[in-house]
Computed example of a mutant assay.
Amino acid sequence: MIFVLPLLLLAVAAVLGIVAGHRGADAARPDDRPLALPPVDAPDATSPSCTRLLAALPATLTASPHPVPRLPLAAPAPAGATAWAGTAGGDPVVLRCGLPRPPELTDSSALIVINGVSWLDLSQPGRDTFIAVDRPVYLAVTVPRDLGTGPVQSVSDTVRTTLPATN
């Protein structure tokens, strides 16, 4: 009888550890509920270029610490937009296609090239926003900084193979 209490306590501790481990796994899992995106000015969102790009984008983006799946968008979803889950409780990755020319883009703008696509970097604290400026349409991808550079690299690969470069 003297060994029953320690064994019972050990069993309770093991069960609590398993339950806590499952909760931790759920906390690390990205949110997959439909995402409501507000409309933005995107005059070319329904263009053939945007339609082709959106159809070609991957279902999952490379990200750190784990890949992120595409999210369904809540109705009414804005044309030319898609999103992928962020980390649990974090912001999603959002792509918008068919945007107007960004006013920040000038002849002297510093651009970065990621996997063959020229991007204007409009990053802010906590998130990186890149606007592709060398394609037939302007598109923006906003990535929470905690996901690393994988999402914009994955999007760049699809942009490069789907939309021809312009000068």
Rank of each mutant, 00 (worst) to 15 (best):
M1Q: 15
I2V: 14
P6N: 10
P6M: 10
P6K: 05
L7S: 14
L8K: 08
L9Q: 05
L10K: 12
L10Q: 14
A11W: 01
A11P: 04
A14P: 14
L16S: 10
L16Y: 04
G17I: 06
I18H: 10
V19K: 02
A20R: 13
G21K: 07
H22N: 13
R23W: 12
G24N: 11
D26W: 08
D26K: 06
A27G: 02
A28L: 11
R29L: 11
R29T: 15
R29M: 14
P30N: 12
D32M: 14
P34M: 01
L35H: 07
A36S: 13
P38D: 13
P38E: 13
V40S: 10
V40N: 03
D41P: 14
A42R: 10
A42W: 07
P43I: 08
D44W: 05
S47A: 14
C50F: 03
C50Q: 03
C50H: 01
T51H: 04
T51P: 04
L53Q: 07
L53E: 06
L53C: 09
L54D: 09
A55C: 05
A56E: 11
L57Y: 01
P58R: 02
L61V: 04
L61T: 01
T62P: 09
A63I: 00
P65A: 04
H66T: 10
R70A: 10
R70G: 04
P72A: 11
A75W: 05
A75H: 14
P76W: 01
P76E: 05
A79Q: 09
A79H: 09
A79L: 07
T82H: 01
A83N: 04
A83H: 02
W84Y: 03
W84C: 00
A85W: 00
G86N: 01
A88R: 06
A88S: 14
G90H: 13
G90P: 13
D91A: 15
P92N: 13
P92W: 04
V93R: 00
V94E: 04
R96V: 08
R96K: 05
R96H: 05
C97T: 07
P100K: 10
P100V: 15
R101A: 13
R101E: 13
P102Y: 02
P103H: 03
P103S: 12
P103C: 02
L105H: 03
L105Q: 07
L105R: 01
D107C: 07
S108G: 11
S108Q: 12
S109C: 11
S109F: 05
A110P: 12
L111E: 06
L111R: 03
I114N: 12
I114C: 07
N115W: 00
N115P: 02
G116R: 08
L120I: 12
S123K: 00
Q124F: 09
Q124M: 15
R127I: 05
R127N: 14
D128C: 10
T129N: 11
T129H: 04
A132Q: 13
V133K: 05
V133T: 15
D134C: 10
R135K: 12
P136C: 05
P136M: 03
Y138V: 15
A140W: 06
T142F: 02
L147S: 10
G148S: 03
G148T: 01
G148H: 00
G150D: 08
G150A: 08
P151W: 00
Q153C: 02
S154A: 15
V159C: 06
R160N: 11
T161H: 15
T162V: 08
